[in-house]
């Protein structure tokens, strides 16, 4: 018989991230595909509760990576995206 373990309770260390929100899930998934193809680091995650905007999915990056890839990401005005700093 295998041993059944307890759940693991821990305290996570939080970090500052850039969160890019989108109007539609399609746009969010398209951003992920575009970034994968271009080798831009980041990932699609569920929208954190502290941000009340967007479709429910968002793209998360480290601030230094965002600064490096900002132009390619094209998150400026009229792009349908919003960019936030968020600690999580």
């Amino acid at each position: 018989m295998t041993e059944n373990k307890r759940d693991h309770i821990r305290k996570r260390i939080k970090k500052d991230y850039i969160i890019i929100t989108f109007k539609t899930t399609t746009a969010a998934m398209a951003m992920e595909n575009r970034c994968l193809k271009k080798g831009i680091p980041g990932r699609l995650i569920p929208l954190p509760g502290g941000i009340a905007a967007g479709c429910g999915l968002c793209f998360r990056m480290l601030p230094e990576e965002y600064a490096k890839w900002e132009k390619e990401l094209g998150c400026g005005e009229g792009s349908g995206t919003e960019v936030y700093h968020y600690v999580m």
Partner: peptide, 24 residues
């Protein structure tokens, strides 16, 4: 299916962010 895959990725990510992690 594409949304389903994005949601599952999101689920695993959100799970990894919990203060109480599952045993298994």
């Amino acid at each position: 299916d594409e949304l389903g895959r994005a949601l599952m990725k999101g689920f695993i990510f959100a799970l990894s962010q919990q203060d109480q992690l599952p045993s298994t």
